[in-house]
Nucleic acid binder design. Structure first.
Lengths: 347, 347
DNA sequence: CTTCAAATTGGAAACGCTTTCATGTATGTT
DNA sequence: AACATACATGAAAGCGTTTCCAATTTGAAG
């Protein structure tokens, strides 16, 4: 009984218009008189008709769908980015197709060929993901703009913060307060794969220390995963009683900083009186932890990236899109001083 | 110079096979001899050809794409769910299209008609989202299975935890320890829209208290948003000096519990010696906070929901899919006792 | 060496729109 | 009033697969 789902043809019939006009009316493309538009819309509503994306895409080459590739969604930084992207895309009437790479390293390749390339996407936003030049070329070859977030992508647009500088400034903040015993907890090497972010931040630390002519025991350069839990454990090792403790810790991310603060508390160390902690990120929990950090506003970065790529898309039709030189944009950060950092305790 | 992107026709030519056979070989549908398959695949690889989703979808009616609607991605619970869903879908070769509703209430309607219904999706997983019966019918009418997570959806499958029971048990845990002065911080009414979760958990608290013949001042029934920050502020009010303090707090979510713990610390209250705190969720930070909670494993829930819906999809072709009675499944939780709860302090 | 069922294959008709092109028609100009 | 211009509209040609159907091959069994 339940007939076939209504097609545009049915709408045309019911409204007394041609298929072409109905398409224009509903798709909002060509010029249609207000009267016809209403006619078409009413008929569509009556039939419960909606345009089929598949058919539209096939015919027009436009998908209204943007792919977002993130290492993981359940990490604050990435989910904030996705949130920012999502809000812009919905606004613009675009779908967002989400790909997570880190659950299974082997999926990474699959994702690219099987999903990204299958022409379902109009563009791709790759977060903290290192695509090879050839992968990018593949994408660009089928006229899909690519935008990197969290690091430069060879040959593609990108937006990122200056990780080296941030790390250096964070360290210098501690040095400026008078600290001379500073430790760093950075990302483990295994996380270096994408954009070498942990490495970059560590360099910032090292250079700042070096410039200040400060040295530190080798084991004050710790690594852990980027989680609170992982860093909590690491920091416990670092702060264990019976050894020389640093008076300040520069954590490569806010979540790591939280872990360090929690660990410090477990040892009865007060922050910042006994131990200063600084992070990088701008995590929402920074507030209750009173964490001093560099806010890099990932939500804003996501929104910005989305806007950039949308602007690019709206520009022209896919095939005649201009291929400008890749633009690597630096996203501004904000230094947020709270009360997790202070002058070191008196000797 | 860069010719048109290769189509299946080109592959057919290059491989010496017919279009039909190439389609079968690459799509993995009908039966194809091993020889032909290899021929087709080699030719496709040589031309850098991949099937077009749009065309495939149009012709087959299958999208290999599942929509996931969540209130927000940047909240631990939801992002964990999405993570679980994502990992299952990738495994199965399905795309995941993400919609977030809460950034702008007005988008909610748009999302449904403009996105969900436009036949781009094979199925929809709605998280903590209350669809009206008619909305669900629309979805089902176009043969799109719908699955609710976090609450029952009228007429659709769903998977959820028993919020009332959980809340009751959490409260009873505190009562069992000997607490008589128990406060509850639940979700604000404005968040009741979807599935009345805050309300349900509050009832669990109230019923448990009532059964134990315990009373409490009206203002020990606090509400806040579901965030750490928000609850931190709320808890500060609750624990403010110079008033009768509860000896235990049941927070409606782990994040709220963290906020309460942080607030307690600011007042110099030790957890659990001076104040017991219990939550619900199984948040990863529960570990470092030592939080006693009910782990409802959102990642697992997501994965489970994904598997269920995939099983449903693989079953038959969209149109002949059997319309079974809606199945509301209860997802198991795990009581995790850590050290945020203990017997109340001596009078 | 037949015979028959099962496996493979190719031709061609969908799938449901968008868009170009050509043709009117309303609007504005001098 | 005559002519140019912009807007509206319909017919029809794709868009790139999948899949039905019929034809052909293959393989096993007799």
């Amino acid at each position: 009984m339940d007939k076939k789902v209504a097609g545009i043809k049915d709408v045309a019939e019911l409204s007394g218009l041609s298929i072409a006009t109905v398409s224009r009316a509903l798709g909002g493309k060509g010029s249609v008189s207000a009267k016809s538009r209403k006619l078409a819309q009413d008929a569509a509503a009556e039939l419960g008709f909606v345009l089929s994306y598949a058919a539209s895409s096939l015919a027009s080459g436009r998908n209204h769908n943007i792919g977002v590739v993130v290492p993981a969604v359940n990490r604050w930084f990435f989910s904030s980015l996705v949130d920012g992207i999502s809000s812009e895309l919905i606004e613009a009437g675009y779908d967002l197709t989400l790909y997570t790479t880190s659950q299974n390293e082997s999926h990474r390749a699959t994702i690219l060929t099987d999903f990204l390339l299958r022409k379902r996407l109009d563009a791709v936003i790759a977060v903290s993901l290192e695509l090879t030049e050839s992968e990018i070329q593949q994408l660009l070859a089928i006229h899909r703009p690519v935008m990197g977030v969290g690091g430069a992508l060879p040959g593609a647009d990108s937006i990122h913060v200056n990780d080296f500088q941030l790390a250096k400034m964070a360290t210098e903040h501690l040095i400026g307060l008078g600290h001379t015993h500073i430790a760093h907890i950075g990302g483990a090497n295994e996380y270096d794969a994408d954009f070498k972010l942990p490495l970059t931040r560590r360099s910032g630390f090292e250079v700042a220390m070096q410039e200040a002519k400060l040295s530190y025991p080798a084991d004050w350069l710790q690594t852990s995963d980027f989680t609170v839990n992982g860093t909590y454990a690491t920091a416990k090792g670092l702060l264990a009683a019976g050894r020389t403790r640093p008076t300040a810790i520069f954590a490569a991310s806010d979540e790591m900083a939280f872990g360090a603060i929690m660990a410090a508390r477990d040892f009865g160390l007060r922050v910042p009186e006994d131990l200063s902690v600084i992070g990088i990120d701008g995590h929402e929990l920074g507030e209750v932890f009173g964490l001093t950090t560099f806010d890099q506003n990932p939500r804003g970065q996501g929104a910005h990236a989305a806007r950039r790529i949308l602007a690019h898309l709206e520009q022209q039709s896919p095939s005649e899109r201009v291929q400008h030189a890749p633009l690597a944009e630096e996203f501004p950060t904000r230094f947020v001083v709270r009360h997790s950092t202070a002058v070191p305790p008196p000797q």
